[in-house]
Design a protein around this nucleic acid. Structure first.
Lengths: 162, 162
DNA sequence: GCTAGATATCTAGAAATCGAGATATTAGAT
DNA sequence: ATCTAATATCTCGATTTCTAGATATCTAGC
């Protein structure tokens, strides 16, 4: 006799649930931390990636901050308006726009990032360093595998009967 | 000589990054799966929790679907409009509203959930069952620890100099 | 019993995000 | 050389989500 469709032992579904919960719990730290600086999480993400990687095409920034392209445009617009980020056309590929920090943008992220990093270190500090290593390995494999499998299902997409 | 503020060995920050990436990759499966049924992820979450737990107060549903209370109101409104969920005042506590599935709501989630579950099992299938178990333990500890630590910082909240 | 603080839900308006599609450019195959 | 498919960015409109705060109720301590 089974009690419901999700048995307590349905390991994959449990993994999905705890993954979502863990992400939610940790990302709340990020939101709290970043909100103090008067930035949105996505805005911070753009500044951070440009700070650490230097000038980058919009599309590469987009992949790293994990939002859709139209949202990236929106966030970059705001950052340009605030004078923190600069756009310039790529000389090698006329489709792409390169993004980089302005002096003001660099000043802000330099001041803000260390404190944010400290906050995030504390957020995940419930795991020992050894367990953090283990978690990184498992999550990397999980994420890469899921991304691969997701590309593979793009071909299907049959709709069910209404 | 250090190359940047985030050294390759800053394990906690790396953990945060791979956690976000893994969540993103896996949650794309959820979105794709659920979109086929003409539901939003949050709407699906409400139906799913009511399906598996029975009638529940709004606040308990909210905690499980990981959105803010006002968003819960919004989603529940839509589900009620579509005749999939029903509200009724709690007899024991006049602050709370109890939510339950209508017959139509139950029909939908019963039809849709098994396929969704299968999709999610596939999404996390890159990890062996043993690794899935390990990941669950680590993520549970990580999530609980982060939630605890986040409550603890509510008292602070000092703003930096502008 | 009464009051202060906690809890549950909802409202209103602003902000963030998405999806579909437009446009321009490039890369690859013929 | 040309045509097709892929890529990069952006626009527009709709949807979703959040924040702040209003209201009502409950609980605990006095």
């Amino acid at each position: 006799m089974k009690r419901s469709t999700v048995r307590p032992r349905d390991v994959p579904l449990r993994l999905w649930v705890v993954l979502a919960r863990a992400f939610d719990a940790v990302s709340r730290h990020a939101r709290t931390s970043i909100a103090r600086f008067g930035l949105g999480v996505t805005e911070f993400g753009v500044l951070e990636v440009l700070y650490h990687k230097g000038e980058l095409p919009v599309c590469q920034v987009q992949q790293r901050i994990l939002v859709e392209s139209s949202s990236t445009t929106y966030v970059v617009d705001k950052l340009c308006d605030r004078g923190l980020v600069r756009r310039r056309p790529s000389p090698s590929d006329r489709r792409v726009t390169l993004l980089s920090l302005t002096a003001a943008g660099r000043r802000i992220i330099e001041r803000v990032f260390p404190r944010h990093a400290e906050m995030m270190r504390h957020a995940v500090g419930a795991l020992s360093p050894a367990d953090q290593d283990r978690a990184i390995d498992l999550l990397r494999a999980l994420g890469l595998g899921a991304a691969e499998r997701h590309k593979a299902i793009g071909e299907l997409e049959p709709l069910p009967e209404p």
